[in-house]
Design a protein around this nucleic acid. Sequence first.
DNA 1: CATATGTCCTGAGAGC
DNA 2: TGCTCTCAGGACATAT
Length: 279
Amino acid sequence: MPELPEVETMCRGIGSIVGMRIDGVDRPSCPCRPCVIEPDVTTLDQRLRHQLVAAIERRGKRVILRFEDDARLVIEPRMSGLVLLTDPPSNEHLRLRIRLSADSRPATELLVWDRRGLGTIRLLTAAEFESRVDQRLGPDALVIEAERLRERLKATARPIKVALLDQSVVAGIGNLYAAEILFVAGIDPRTRCDRLSRARWERVHMAIKEVLEEAIANEGSTLSDGTYRNALNNPGGYQNLHRVYDRQDQPCVRCPNGRIRRIVQAQRSTFFCGGCQKR
DNA sequence: CATATGTCCTGAGAGC
DNA sequence: TGCTCTCAGGACATAT
């Protein structure tokens, strides 16, 4: 499930298409039902043909191709989407193909593959991007300042773990990294936001940076279902460094007698150490 | 306004 | 073996 580190790895992996022009967009012959693509593939092809990829950007968990006129192709992988420059994990769930070329470089294809098909692909004008993406998302988790994070949450009664998943508060943290972040911060995920001291907000903020940067350095997490791959179809390595996620009943790596617990918050699994994560 | 719930989807794993 | 059932999770729409 691509969260910020996986999406950042995807973006870095497709950086080589910056400066290339789009020769065409189509949907590879594939038995799967199309995922959300706006506008439809034919219109997308007409609008994007000959456009130069000016930049690859990331905002939260979205991959963004920016063009010269500031239009943006916004790709949300959600649960199982990938962007690839090589052959996908299977030919069964290919959703979109973007053919690119440049004078001095070999032609290439950017593929969007999505096993579950919950992801979305949208071409937005600069104004649409502003209203539909930029304004709806909180600051990116790698950029947000400690005081801004606290300002946004100090008055709410929501549990800290649930609040960190809210993309309108801070963008990029999902279920896996929320658990890892709160372990590093030493905070019980059930703690109400309005009961956290300023010092503990500082710890949450530091843990966000530390965990996400470490995960990016390891190219994200590929879970046991094997879905997540980088742009070259290689798995990440951070799953080997998880301290709590999917480790229920295993010993805590930090405190002597702690065991990792699994509870459910907002219909999602939460993993934490009952020994050293404090309310 | 703040918060909670239902929905989309596929494949893995459990249980019979 | 092979069927049916449940579950996982991100973001959005809808309900309270």
